[in-house]
Design a protein around this nucleic acid. Structure first.
Length: 465
RNA sequence: GGUCCCUUCGUCUAUCGGUUAGGACAUCUGGUUUUCAACCAGGAAAGAGGGGUUCAACUCCCCUAGGGACUACCA
């Protein structure tokens, strides 16, 4: 029973992080059930839609690994079909032409009764013979009695009195469709079986069901997911920090981590917090989606990111790195660099929260020799340490098994005979090897660098002191 | 104003009538450590309020409060 989901953003900006999660849920559900995940750009608002925004949505989804099936649909391109359906509704008597002008409607809204009820068109039951030769909109002839009930996979059963719904406009006077019409027609034509979207659309599910019924179409399964808020419980906006998916790439988050964090925000699988996308696909279901909105927590995201930086396969990490670098407008890492990087990846991944941190740590293997010490770390290369080096270097030169463990033992013994803490020796050595103390462990670096290179760097440093 | 939705530690959440209400992040204390850090041990921390139903309610029902969505020829 082919499941079809869709993500339908309007291209008026970047890909919002809330939208990204909606897309993720749709994607997860489709993948979990062997279904299709479709993308539709809701570009019927010509004034606000831009190609750049459409591209930003594509880019954001691609970065997040949320590949859609087939070509993306353009809602605007389907306007003839929308008009056709509006006409069909007219023919079936479920819609009517309304000649009320915008001025008349506004006048009604400004009036006392306009404060409460919605606009009731006098043309609903008017004799067609009295119709003027003037522009008109096509309105839905919404039922006045009865109840509209929908069953939502997340919200449960929700109902409204039909009287609550107004005769919404289906086709504007310029023959373009409104959102309400376009969505229903497109979802129907695209064969969408499950509509997973933000719960700001919950009422629209009722309105749209009216159209489905009028056309005699099957109503899809609804799942209205709660929105994401900022840490203060208000709608997530710029002042909370990043709201665009792209920004997270630029900050150095892994797509795998974003998928994990976003999936876990509002959905759960018992106590599982850290999981792969593969697991998320296996576990995902609509029933476990929470009904309450959740707040975005950067601290937790950092923690999730740290986990994935540590555990993701090498090629995924490299891809993430390249994505990050591209987001900074820098040239990609070359093959030569990657060859140097790959062997030290294990020591780079430890204790790193974000991709730029990892790159910082990689300086010891990538950076040009000799290293000019960082401003804050230059103090380590003082005369005392110079003396220490004089006694230590010969010992190092005599090492036969150049491993992390052997070196650590040697340093500990050495520090003990010197009568100083290990930190007094190992810490300045980091500056010698990398120019900074923000590096991997001293012994990891030495082991990775090899004996000759290590000795050469000590030489560089003593020349400077 | 009206309609609809939501409400467990600071945060994300588990619990599907019977638990000392569990976990994770953050936080605090102690330990360890060559580092931005990490790790180990331990602590503090929650069912919005009020009524019901029931032998028993975080869990079911109602009310109140607070938050949110919608109420466009936007989507």
């Amino acid at each position: 029973m082919g499941i079809v989901t869709r993500f339908a953003p309007s291209p008026t900006g970047y890909l919002h992080i809330g939208g990204a999660r909606t897309a993720l849920f749709n994607w997860l559900y489709a993948r979990a059930n062997g279904g299709k995940f479709l993308l539709r750009i809701e570009d019927t608002d010509r004034a606000r839609s831009t190609d750049a925004a459409t591209q930003a949505i594509y880019d954001g989804l691609k970065w997040l690994g949320l590949e859609w099936d087939g070509e993306a649909y353009s809602q605007f391109a389907r306007k003839e079909r929308h008009a056709e359906v509006a006409q069909a509704m007219l023919d079936k008597g479920h819609a009517y032409k309304c000649y009320a002008t915008k001025a008349e409607i506004e006048e009604f809204r400004a009036s006392p009764e306009g404060k409460y009820g919605s606009f009731q068109s006098p043309w609903r039951d008017a004799d067609p013979a009295t119709a003027p030769d003037a522009p008109y909109v096509i309105r839905l002839k919404a039922p006045r009695d009865g109840v509209m009930e929908i069953t939502d996979e997340v919200q449960g059963r929700v109902s409204w009195k039909n009287a609550e719904f107004d005769d919404m406009i289906l086709l504007r006077s310029d023959r373009t469709p409104t959102y309400m019409l376009a969505v229903v027609v497109d979802d129907h034509d695209m064969g969408v079986t499950h509509i997973i979207r933000g719960d700001d659309h919950l009422i629209n599910a009722g309105r749209q069901s009216l159209i489905y019924n009028a056309m005699g179409w099957d109503i899809p399964v609804f799942a209205h997911i709660p929105l994401i808020f900022g840490d203060d419980g208000k709608k997530l906006s710029k002042r909370h920090g990043a709201t665009g998916a792209e920004e997270y790439r630029a900050m150095g988050y892994l797509a795998e981590a974003m998928r994990n964090y976003l999936a876990r925000l509002g959905w759960s699988h018992g106590d599982d917090e850290l999981f792969t996308t593969k697991q998320a696909i296996e576990w995902f279901n609509l029933k476990a989606i929470n009904k309450a909105p959740s707040r975005f927590d950067f601290k937790k995201l950092d923690n999730v990111n740290k986990f994935h930086i540590e555990n993701v396969p090498d090629d995924v990490l490299i891809t993430g790195l390249q994505d990050y670098i591209a987001s900074q407008g820098r040239a990609p890492l070359t093959e030569a660099v990657l060859t140097k990087l790959k062997p030290v990846l294990p020591i780079l991944r430890e204790r790193t929260k974000k991709l730029p941190d990892l790159l910082d740590k990689a300086r010891f293997i990538l950076g040009p020799r000799p290293f000019a010490p960082d401003e804050n770390d230059a103090k380590h290369l003082n005369s005392v340490f110079n003396g220490i080096l004089k006694r230590l270097t010969p010992q190092l030169a005599g090492v036969t098994t150049w491993t992390k463990e052997e070196l650590e033992t040697l340093f500990r013994d050495f520090a003990e005979t010197e009568g100083v803490g290990l930190g007094k020796v190992a810490q300045p050595m980091k500056v010698v090897l990398s120019g900074t103390t923000k590096s991997p462990s001293t012994f990891d670096m030495m082991a990775a660098l090899g004996k000759d290179e290590t000795l050469a760097r000590i030489n560089d440093a003593t020349a400077r002191m």
